[in-house]
């Protein structure tokens, strides 16, 4: 059918010294895959080269070939990384070229763990040998490439994890806040961007005080973030991302929930349920009122509205919360 003859390791003199090693699938194997001849051959030469523990330029050829057919083959990636570093140590390979190889793959395979772990290893190695100015250039290019990835999928978990590693590793916080603000401008419901905002604003620290980045958060920063949330909620009151972020900020800076009561009432006037536009505001109000015994009635009312009308799919949860309020008396 296909007139173009496929490349064959068997007919390439550069591979003539190797005896291809077949795969041992055991007797009557289950879940056996009907490999193409191309894959079977490439794998058998790779096994042969791995058995010799050889780290030569032709390893890069066969690993790239297999990765093209199966980018989730983690063994190939680990062996390729070892080979790259061996060849780079002797000056036979420029690690920067590897990033170009990865760019092309990453754009075509969005859901892949190995590409990003490999990229992290390679960037770490490049940075180790780079001058500060070269490092800055590297980080800038990495961020540019990630922006291309985010154009395809603004919520790609692997890319976001990589970005957080990169930003923390190279202290590359500059520009991150305007970057997430721009993404949120495009889609205010992009929760990955909100999550990154939290990461950036609080210096990479999570909710745990023992992590780095804990310290006094300046008042202006808190005010800026609350103003940002207010704007976001105004254009989309039912956006869970913004409300979750609000709770996260308040808890992180130890502000009481009651400090946002009036904002919540704007979206969830308890005395006028027909005007309620946000179930998340109701949820927050319920927590605010649960803190004061004399306001428990209002907390229960908010929760009952959620269970019966505004978020009935979570009725079991809202009723559980009613139980907590009543039990706390």
């Amino acid at each position: 059918m296909n007139p173009t003859p496929l490349y064959s390791y068997a007919s390439d003199p550069a591979w003539a010294d190797l005896l291809p090693l077949p795969q041992d699938d055991g007797q009557y194997p289950l879940a056996q895959i009907a490999y193409t001849e191309e894959y079977t051959e490439a794998m058998s030469y790779l096994r042969a080269i791995m058995a010799k523990n050889e780290h030569s330029p032709r390893v890069l050829q066969v690993t790239a070939h297999i990765i093209e057919m199966n980018p989730a083959h983690y063994t190939i990636w680990v062996y390729r990384a070892k080979t790259l570093f061996a060849l780079s140590a002797t000056g036979e390979v420029q690690l920067g070229r590897e990033l170009e190889f990865l760019n092309d793959l990453a754009l075509r395979h969005q859901k892949n763990y190995q590409i990003w772990n490999h990229r992290q290893t390679v960037v770490e190695a490049i940075a180790a040998a780079a001058a500060p100015a070269e490092q800055e250039q590297l980080v800038r290019e990495e961020k540019e490439f990630m922006n291309r990835m985010f154009e395809q999928d603004g919520k790609n978990y692997h890319v976001w994890s990589y970005r957080q590693w990169l930003v923390r590793r190279f202290e590359a916080w500059d520009g991150e806040l305007s970057f997430v603000s721009a993404l949120l401008e495009r889609d205010v419901r992009n929760n990955s961007a909100w999550n990154h905002r939290f990461f950036v604003v609080f210096g990479g620290g999570g909710m745990d005080a023992r992590q780095q980045g804990e310290g006094e958060v300046v008042e202006e920063v808190v005010e800026r973030e609350i103003a940002f949330i207010e704007d976001a909620v105004f254009i989309a009151p039912q956006n869970a991302s913004a409300w979750n972020y609000l709770r996260g900020v308040l808890k992180k800076v130890h502000r009481p929930l009651s400090s946002v009561e009036s904002m919540c009432l704007g979206y969830a006037p308890l005395d006028n349920p027909d005007k309620i536009t946000s179930s998340h505001a109701l949820d927050l109000l319920a927590d605010i009122y649960a803190e004061k015994r004399e306001e428990h009635g209002k907390a229960v009312k908010a929760l009952e509205l959620l269970a019966a009308k505004f978020d009935p799919i979570r009725a079991n949860y809202w009723n559980y919360r009613v139980g907590l309020v009543k039990a706390s008396v």
């Binding site: 994890s161 939290f198 990461f199 999570g206 979750n244 996260g248 808890k251």
Partner: peptide, 19 residues
């Protein structure tokens, strides 16, 4: 425990990943 995020859910690592 450190994998819990500000949202209440859990990220892949304790390094700030999304829930």
């Amino acid at each position: 425990g450190r994998c819990q995020t500000y949202e209440g859910g859990f990220g892949a690592t304790p390094n700030g990943n999304e829930a």
